[in-house]
Design a protein around this nucleic acid. Structure first.
Lengths: 353, 353
DNA sequence: AAAATAAATTAACACGTGTTAGTTGTGTAA
DNA sequence: TTACACAACTAACACGTGTTAATTTATTTT
């Protein structure tokens, strides 16, 4: 069933059918209705490839999840017997939101995960083969995006989400970022409000921009309230669960015991919980813990984890807005959007006197 | 950059370029190399739409996640302020595995979620517009798939995953199923092995096939070992966390206290944990708990949950195998594949005397 | 050297659509 | 009646590719 068939059925030329579909104004209501009726009755859908071929958009957005292992295995690919367990649940809600919102904007979504630098061609391929009009690139670290920026021609419409974009590239790309600074700021203010004065931190990977910013914001917040920044209460982690465990062990081993610890992401908080339990301490009675990300598990931890929520649907919305504007105006502007965050108060923090 | 350009550059006809790309045998090595060199040098990728238009496959598979709310809100769409939190983490590892394995087989993947019956057109649209060669349909319940079977012409290549296919349709569709029966069987045998004789159950939704089968297998297992099936130790749940909580409360309130409870999925086990804690009991000291699914959180529960693992990568593999065979042979056969499961022994079950 | 065969190459068509420029039909103004 | 504007429609081209059948070129056989 194609437009020629519909034309024959209605007794009109193929051009007319096309003009009806594309809402040309010079079609009388009577003709339009006849055509639409036949289209519906015979279940006709225009061939997407043919449309794309004559210069129309492909009506498809891409989403590329960068998941490149540096040296070791990535934290979310757990080997189990011989097959891998795929689990990047951190991105999953974002992906779902992005797909749903794209669909609502009449766009299809092509999803692909990139597990090593060798697979970066997937991005090129999707663009050059004209399968997608634009794409979101999410995840991974500094070094990779430089490679990606380099690999991609500048005429690919892409948005980097939660990506560490180097300063020299900041005006060559579009990006949507999380307001890490204010999130950490709020978290620390909240702890102070609860009466805490000896506050520790388990940092994220300081090689990553988000790790750096969160740490800086933490220090600034203490400074603003003239609170001491005790070296014994700082543990340097790398966003993995195990580093959270080790970090908390280190902090608890010091003389200066904190009454609260800010952990730079929820994954590390899982490890921190374990360390605290092993030391025979109770959350929040003996020590308050606050995380960052509001990841899926955080609500199921016991006690449920107070954390900073990053609204992934909002990030999805911002990304799509940028992409569509860019696609429709046919011009690429380097733009940054920043998404705000809010504290989710649960049961891992306690007021003290 | 198209094949015409490449042809001009190499000094050969467009046909020759095409024949090189499509591995025709009658091209001498010298010519082939010249063409391939130019293709690489100029970053030429054949236009996917044009290829599709001349009858080639679109090299794209679809994955449709059916997520239809019956009356109430679905368990994974949690309203938060005004925007939704997208979280179907249960399917997420399957989706990732499916995408990765499809990519390895040189296929792109189009992902779409269907939140209500009104959106079923998305499946039709993707097929009729010739965007995909085949698709996996995952999730949801009985009623919906009948609608889907009805809506779809029989010449769409689809595989139903973990779907309740009605008997009358079983020979009209392809499907990949979890071996629920043997999974439950193994779980109960394991509990018996540990010395348990008073075993309770929180069932799943008995309207769903998986709910029915799991319950039946449980009863059969007890029968095989001449163990009593005590009504007080049966709680009827519906796969949701809250029903797990209520079910466990009910069981614990009865006179006949069980030493172990089989919970028909991990989500209900979360609720069951809470109920047990509220009753002042300890897992596994006072009561052993075993779940089903090996969902992401199960490893993070405390104590970590012993459960039955469903290998989602294997399901993905089976689905893709079925789809590709069907696509390549251009014939649709109704086939069923069943994936086996294994117990993951963690810390929620204890040996008793 | 001519003829026959094999190897290498290509011209031309088809795929299904959107759009441009053109044509036909219809009513209005001169 | 003629000229003209305008509405309604359509013929024909372009998009980039794969493939069939035909053509050219090279090699072998007579």
């Amino acid at each position: 069933m194609n437009s020629k068939d519909i034309a024959k059925i209605v007794g009109v030329s193929r051009s007319t059918v096309s003009r009806v579909i594309n809402n040309y104004p010079d079609i009388p209501q009577a003709t339009r209705e006849k055509v639409l009726k036949a289209i519906k009755e015979y279940n006709y859908y225009p061939n997407a490839s043919a449309r794309r071929l004559v210069g129309m958009k492909s009506s498809t957005l891409g989403i590329f999840i960068i998941d490149i292992r540096d040296n070791e295995k990535p934290h979310h690919v757990i080997e189990k017997n011989e097959d891998l367990l795929y689990d990047n649940s951190y991105f999953s809600p974002f992906i779902n939101a992005f797909i749903d919102q794209s669909n609502k904007a009449q766009y299809h979504v092509l999803v692909s995960t990139i597990y090593s630098s060798d697979e970066l061609w997937k991005i090129q391929s999707a663009f050059y083969e004209k399968r997608i009009d634009g794409a979101v690139i999410v995840g991974s670290s500094n070094a990779d995006y430089n490679k990606i920026v380099e690999i991609m021609d500048k005429d690919f419409v892409t948005v980097a989400v939660d990506f560490d974009v180097e300063k020299e590239n900041i005006d060559r790309v579009m990006s949507v970022n999380v307001n890490n600074y204010s999130g950490v700021s709020d978290a620390v203010e909240y702890l102070i409000e609860l009466g805490h004065r000896d506050i520790g931190i388990i940092t994220g990977d300081l090689k990553k921009l988000s790790g750096k910013i969160r740490f800086n914001s933490f220090k600034d917040a203490l400074l603003r309230h003239s609170l001491p920044l005790n070296d014994d209460l700082i543990a340097y982690g790398d966003f993995t669960e195990y580093s959270g465990y080790e970090g908390m062990k280190k902090i608890l081993a010091s003389d200066k015991k904190p009454t609260a610890v800010f952990v730079c992401n929820d994954t590390m908080a899982i490890g921190a919980y374990r360390a605290i339990e092993e030391c025979g301490l109770k959350i929040p009675e003996n020590i308050s813990v606050i995380g960052f990300d509001n990841s899926y598990i955080s609500q199921y931890m016991s006690p449920s984890l107070t954390t900073v929520n990053v609204s992934l649907p909002e990030i999805a919305k911002c990304s799509i807005d940028l992409l569509l504007e860019c696609i429709n105006n046919n011009e690429i502007k380097a733009m940054q959007k920043t998404v705000n965050v809010q504290i989710i108060k649960r049961n891992s923090c306690k007021k003290i006197d």
